[in-house]
Structures are given as C-alpha cells and as structure tokens.
Nucleic acid binder design. Structure first.
Lengths: 325, 325
DNA sequence: ATGAAAGCGCTAACAA
DNA sequence: TTGTTAGCGCTTTCAT
C-alpha cells in the first residue's frame, strides 16, 4: 500500500480510511495528505474479502415485473433507491429474476455477495423471498399479501388512506351514487384501495355495492364502467383504483353521453402521465414513489448497520385535485 | 476451499468453476458433484481480487437526468441493459452522478471497481466521460454532440431516418405545406430529427423554412404550433420532434379550429404513452429503447472481453401509423 | 496509539 | 493434465 509512504504502517492507513477514533489527529492528517497526493482509492474487492462486508445492496425485480420498468411508479421507486444510496457507501445491484436464473439469484444472494436486498413486489405482493429473511436483511416494497409469521420488513404507501380520501372528497362535493372500479383483489394495492373506498361509503351510510373489477388496464376500466352504468344509470361519481382504469371510464362515460365531471365525477389513483394528459385532467391520488424508494433503501441500510429502525413504514398519499372531481 | 474434498486441488476446482478445457471430464464431474453437494458458491470478492476482473458494469446516469427515470425511453433502456446482462455473468451497478459525488464517481470508475461503463447521455449528448476512454471501456447511449478525436463507442437510434420516414409518409399522403416543431439543437436527437425532416423536404423540392423550435415539452409544442400557424395558415401537416410537442400542437390546432388529421396531419416521435393516449391517437416514430439498452450492454461486454465488435451502432426506427396522419 | 503478522478465498504462473 | 506456490489489497487480532 503505497500510502504507507506517509510514514506509517498499512494498518494505520486502514484505520484512517475507516475513520477509527484511535488515531492521533496529526497522523490522520498526514495520511490523508498522502492519500490525496497519491490519488489513492481503496480496492473494493480486497476490502470486501478482508472485512466480509460487501457494501452492496441488491434490488430484485421479479421477471414478471421486468416490464414494469415501463411503469413510472417503479421507475421512480428505483430512482429513489439510487438517490438515497448515492449518499452512502453502498452500491446498487439490480437483479432481474427470471426462471432461468431463479436459483442463481438465490445463490447469489446467499453467497455473501450482498449485504442486503430490496424486493419490489408492488404488484403481486409476492414475498417469496421472505425465506431470505433471517439469513440476509430484506426490505420489501409493498406490504405482503397475507400477514406472515416472520413479519418481513416493508415500506408501503397508504393505499387505503388514499382511497378513503378520494371517496370522502367525492362525498364532500355532494356525490352520493359513488361506484368504484377496483383492481385485482390478489394484489395488495387492488385490495386496499377497494377497502378504503368501502370503509368510507359504509361510514357514511352509502351503498357500497357498486363495485366492478378491472385489471389496471385502460380497456378493463372502460369495460367495468359500462357494466356499472348498466347496473345503475344514476351513478354520479366513480373512484378507479388507478389512472389507466379511470381513463377507461372516461371512454365509457363519453360513449353513454355523460359529461365529466358534470354528470359523473371521476377520481383515479397513481397520478401518472395518464392523469395529466387525460381530458379533462384527472383528479387522482398521488403516491410518493421516489420517497418509497428512498425509505426502502434507508430502512435496509439501518437494518444492515444495526441501527434503530421501524419494522415497516406506510407513506402518506395525497389527493391531487384537477378537473374531473 | 471445502470443495477440494472432491479429491483434487483448489487449483483444479478453480479450473472447473471457470470452465477450463484442460480438465479431465471425470474430474470435472466429480468436482461438480462436490460443488453441488456442498452447495458451494464462489466468493465474488476473492475472485475479483485475484483475477483483477470485477464482472461489474456501471450504468452512469448524469444527475440532471436522474429525473429521466420518469422518461419511459430511459426506463426501457435500463430494462434492456438489465435483460442482456441477466444472461451474462456481469452485474449492473447504477451510479447516479451528482455534483456532490462527481469526483467520487470518477474515482470509483478508475479505482478498478468496474470492468466497463455505460453512459446514458441521450438528451445532452454530453460525452464528458470520454476521458475515461482508454482507461476503461465506455459505451454511450446516443451519439456525441460533436464528433470527437477519440471516437467513443456508442449506440444510437436512427433519429434522422425516423424523421425522414415520417416526412416521406406525410408527402406520400399528399401533404405539401409541412412544418416541423424541432427540439433543442444542442441535443443530438433534436438536431438529427430536424435534419431528417429538412433533407426530405429539400429532396422533394418543398419549402423547408417552416421550422419552430420547442424544448420537448407539451407547452412548448403548443407555443411553437401557434407561431407556425401565424406565419403560414396554410400548413397541412406538422412533424414534431417528440410526442409531447405533438400533443402540444394538437392543442394549438384545436384552438384554431383545425381538425387532425382532416386539416392538418400530425406525426410525433418516441411512441410513448402520450402518443397512445392522445386523441386522435398519434402517428409517431417508434424507437427501440429496450433494444438500445441491450445493444449497449452487448457492445460493452464484447469490448471488455476483447471480442470482435462494431465501434458504434445505429438502430432503426419504425413509423407507427395511428390516426393522426 | 501504532505496528506486525496472519489471513480473507480465489486465480495464475510455474512446475511436475 | 494437475498440483504447488505465491500473491491480489485490505482488515484485524494481538502485541507493544
């Protein structure tokens, strides 16, 4: 180690580099000077090997979700993770999990190649990596679909609260025949958003039977809306579990000659580009995607470093008022 | 190395693991069996340290572009990179370059922590990392803004060809007063798309002066279209350098009471969600974002491994016909 | 508070 | 074809 030319031993240089408190200030300074002069950069591999710490965090994307890169929510989440990690000494390692390499990924994770893992299971609620828990710290994005014995760490957005806020807003503006286009019930966001709507409807003594289910696509939203209108022509508002389905509802509403928000108020969820470009601009529930990524990364680092931390976080959502409700 | 309990030396195990051809088949088999039984996973750090190869590829995102995660093009590009790398032994390392860590990133790259780097400079054409070339293999996404001495490796999409195809389509459908809403001319895509339009206009003896410039936002597209209409009310078609600006043009056209595509045909570029959800659905030029990511990753790996390769690739774009032209 | 010395787990000459 | 022998560059007891 050339930096030892600062007149001290390699061990001392190592101490300085790692911020050991047991080094004389003067020595610290001269070592730092030598480091600067020699433009020294510690070798990561050697450090890992000797310390048995990798300073690497894995971001696991289930293959089925590889396409969700196209999902702005996911993209922002990754951005949040990267942003938080940029301030730390950790590196991000993206693993796309595919059938071909499922065992490979698991072995990689358990092979001591990373200090912890982040799993994005937003859509499926699949926490199959839970088995890693106990062996390797893992933080999930999105709550597990079903509560598990070994409560995994996770960060989620307040889907229920967001849906409730949207529904309350609708009621607050005088709507009474409020329908909802729900998402798949085997996905936590789909389930929670329906649950939030239902809770508020009941609390206000309103009919909570106007439920149609879609699969988060525009087409399914249109389809669901048509069915809803057929069942109850008097609908004066609809809460869709995501923006795409809300846009689909727009289409069905237009077909039936109804105006938004004049005849029917519409609120979506996600606040993605569909909401902004829809006409009229869609009132929707915004979720802190970047913040979720940051929170996940932060939580994982806290766990890895044995610092105090929550076991899970639920981030607040906000209603974004535009023209549709 | 426990696997040596297969009755051979550590060196032989290493050879088997690394697929050396100089090992007796029988031994290979027994070693593999031992590996399986002992559930052995080679330690990455040790391997890196000894071989001086990291099997890690950095993906550098200039901070100013961190937000471009929201850009579907970028998201798909990352997906492509990850998909290609999933089939190799390389890991992906995302580095978000910020002012705070600019030197840090550079040192990290030069500190032997990665085998190569991918730089996404799509929007700016900034190839400031070119200096890394020669030290570390670097492949850029998007051509450099100005040709450089040490021609860097890059993968680009055929912006000029896409623009030309769009313009030809317009001419082919009988349009003659064709305007264009160009992007910033200090960004390669902005420049090349204008250039493609101009080339075809001239080749067909048409007026190539109907140019207005925007900054790739919806608002700038509307603004540009208004100006164009003022200069030449007889415009019967417009090619916008991206979909957002095309949507902006829709707005200006609607304000002036013109129909799309009846009075004015419109073609965009990118084929993102704006194109699909616009009404009427926007005819646009689609670029292979995922393919670009894959190509970048493939090229970099070829360079790293000293295999034969191109110095740069330009991927074809395709015209996606929808309702606006 | 600092140095000496022993590895971390693997690869890569060099021998055999 | 296989084994031997050195390290790769750093951290970390253990002395001092």
């Amino acid at each position: 180690m050339v930096a030892a030319q600062a007149g001290v031993s390699r061990a001392t240089v190592s101490r300085v580099v790692n911020g050991s408190p047991t080094v004389t200030p003067e020595i610290v300074e001269s070592v730092n000077r030598a480091i600067a002069e020699l433009n020294y950069v510690p070798n990561r591999a050697a450090r890992m090997l000797a310390s048995r710490r990798t300073q690497v965090i894995a971001l696991i994307v289930p293959e089925s979700s590889a396409k969700i890169f196209a999902d702005p929510f996911f993209a922002q989440l990754v951005q949040g993770v990267a942003l938080h990690l940029a301030d730390t000494e950790y590196m991000l390692n993206m693993l796309i999990e595919s059938e071909a390499n499922s065992g490979k990924t698991r072995r990689y994770l358990l092979g001591g190649n990373v200090d912890g893992a982040l799993v994005v299971s937003h859509h499926t609620g699949d926490h199959s990596y839970a088995q890693l828990n106990g062996t390797l710290p893992v933080v999930y994005g999105g709550r597990p679909l079903v509560p598990e014995d070994n409560e995994p760490y996770f960060v989620d957005v307040d889907n229920r609260g967001g849906a409730a806020a949207a529904t309350e807003h609708l009621i607050g503006t005088g709507r009474r025949r409020i329908a909802t286009i729900a998402g798949p019930q085997d996905m936590p966001p789909g389930f929670d958003r329906l649950d939030g709507w239902r809770g508020v409807m009941r609390a206000n003594g309103l009919d909570d039977s106007l439920v149609a289910q879609g699969d988060f696509t525009v087409a399914s939203g249109a389809e669901a809306m048509r069915g809803l209108l057929e069942r109850e022509p008097g609908i004066d508002a609809v809460f869709a579990a995501n923006d795409q389905m809300a846009v689909g509802a727009y289409q069905a509403l237009a077909e039936s000659g109804r105006q938004v928000p004049g005849d029917v108020a519409v609120i979506g969820f996600d606040d993605n580009s569909f909401a902004e470009t829809a006409s009229p601009a869609l009132t929707t529930v915004s979720q802190p995607a970047v913040g979720m990524g940051q929170a996940m990364a932060e939580l994982l680092v806290q766990i890895i470093e044995g610092r105090p931390h929550q076991d899970h976080l639920v981030l607040p959502t906000t209603l974004v008022r535009r023209a549709s409700a």
